[in-house]
Simulated scan of single mutants.
Amino acid sequence: MFTGIIEGKGKVIQIHPIDSGIEFQIITEWENPDLKIGDSVAINGACMTATKLENGGNLFSFYTSFKSLELTNLSRLTEGDEVNLERAMAVGQRYGGHIVQGHVDGMGQVLSRKEIEENKVEEFWIVAPEELRKYFVKKGSVTVDGVSLTVVDVREGAFQLILIPETIQKTNAKHWAKDKLVNLEVDVLAKYIENFLELRFSK
C-alpha cells in the first residue's frame, strides 16, 4: 500500500535484459535508508520488489516482468532517466495522499503543458486510455507516475492537472513534456463502486 506522496527521485544507472523481463538498478538517497531485500517500492507508481541492495538501499535493483513492461512506461526507461520513488507505507505513518496500490492501470499521454501563473504553477492535460476514462471525475483522485494528484477538469477523453512548483521539483513531473507517456492508476474506490453496481444490477 502506498500514499502517492513521493519520497524522492532515483536515477536509472543500469538496465539488464534477462529471459523473463528486465532488471533495473537505481541509485537514490533515501532520507532514512532502511530498504531491505523483499521490500516493496513504487517505481513511477508501479509496485516492484527490491532484489539487491547496497549502501542501505541507496543503491538497489528490481526485476520487471514482460507483462509489467507492457502495462507501464518502465519499458521506455533508459540509463540516466529519473524515476519517482515511494516505499510501502509503515504502520502509524501519516496518510498524506490517497489509497494507492501500486497497480498501474495503463499509460496516459501528455497532451499539453503550460505555465498559467507567474509563480510557476503549471497546467497539464493528459489523454487517458479509453477503457479508463469512466473513472475520471472533477475533484477525484488519480496517480500519475506514482504522484497522488487531484483531477481539476475532464474533457473529451483527457483530464486536467494543476501542479505547484514544489511538486514539479520533487518529482519527475519536470520531464512531463508533450507526448510523454505516464503511468496511471485510477482511484481504487471508483473500481469497487463500479463492481458493486454491476453485481447489484445484473441480478
Rank of each mutant, 00 (worst) to 15 (best):
67 K>F: 10
67 K>R: 11
77 L>W: 02
94 R>M: 11
88 A>F: 03
96 G>Y: 04
137 V>P: 02
84 N>A: 01
119 N>K: 13
129 P>M: 07
95 Y>V: 15
73 N>K: 09
73 N>W: 07
139 K>V: 07
83 V>P: 01
77 L>E: 05
76 R>M: 14
103 H>G: 08
129 P>A: 06
68 S>M: 03
144 V>W: 02
66 F>K: 13
111 L>C: 02
118 E>W: 04
92 G>F: 07
130 E>P: 03
81 D>S: 14
78 T>D: 09
130 E>N: 10
134 K>S: 15
67 K>H: 11
71 L>S: 05
107 M>T: 10
136 F>W: 04
136 F>V: 05
125 W>I: 08
119 N>I: 00
107 M>P: 00
101 Q>D: 00
126 I>D: 01
122 E>K: 14
121 V>Q: 13
114 K>A: 07
101 Q>E: 05
69 L>Q: 11
88 A>N: 00
115 E>R: 14
141 S>Y: 10
113 R>Y: 04
72 T>K: 08
123 E>Q: 14
99 I>S: 06
99 I>V: 14
112 S>R: 08
143 T>S: 15
71 L>D: 03
88 A>W: 00
145 D>T: 03
138 K>D: 14
135 Y>N: 10
71 L>I: 11
138 K>E: 15
142 V>L: 10
94 R>I: 11
127 V>T: 11
87 R>G: 04
98 H>L: 09
93 Q>F: 03
91 V>F: 13
98 H>E: 02
116 I>Q: 02
78 T>M: 06
79 E>H: 03
139 K>R: 15
129 P>T: 07
107 M>S: 05
70 E>M: 06
83 V>I: 15
98 H>Q: 08
90 A>F: 04
93 Q>Y: 02
96 G>P: 03
78 T>A: 11
145 D>L: 03
85 L>Q: 05
119 N>Y: 04
106 G>S: 06
131 E>S: 13
85 L>V: 04
85 L>I: 05
65 S>V: 00
142 V>M: 08
120 K>Q: 15
89 M>H: 07
101 Q>I: 05
107 M>C: 13
140 G>W: 10
140 G>A: 13
133 R>C: 09
109 Q>I: 09
132 L>I: 11
127 V>Q: 14
91 V>C: 10
70 E>Q: 12
116 I>S: 00
112 S>M: 08
